[in-house]
């Protein structure tokens, strides 16, 4: 499969400047922020994976972005606006339809205070 071999060559070219950007503590922190569980045994390999990708992303530092305004939207136009009219709501059944747990018109969730 010559195609695949070549693709690997391309990849190695791109990831040649790999650094250890992300450590195990970082992984723990971002997992907590993202509300994702990462097993202790996975921490290191995830840190390596993320380091690989972020190391590769660091080539963005080569670009001269002096006086460049960051792009905030893919469309250049004035923000559209709504009139202040009540045109929605009153659809409690629809809102609650897919709720894992509901009671008396409320969403029921695990206790959010101690």
């Amino acid at each position: 499969m010559p195609l695949l071999t070549r693709a690997y060559v391309i990849m190695e070219f791109f990831v040649s400047n790999q650094k250890n950007v992300v450590n195990v503590e970082d992984v723990k922190k971002i997992a907590r922020l993202s509300r994702l569980r990462v097993e202790d045994t996975e921490l290191q390999s995830l840190a390596d994976d993320l380091s690989g990708i972020l190391g590769w992303i660091e080539q963005l530092n080569e670009v001269d972005v002096d006086k460049v305004e960051p792009m905030t939207s893919a469309v250049a136009m004035k923000s559209p606006m709504r009139k202040d009219i009540v045109s929605d709501g009153d659809k409690r059944d629809q809102i609650l339809k897919n709720a894992p747990k509901k009671d008396d018109g409320f969403f029921v969730v695990p206790r959010s205070v101690e």
Binding site: L60, N61, V63, V65, V68, P70, T72
Partner: peptide, 12 residues
């Protein structure tokens, strides 16, 4: 370092 820079590169 990442997001803002990427959006600037995007403008480029």
């Amino acid at each position: 370092a990442y997001y803002l820079r990427a959006q600037k590169v995007r403008a480029r």
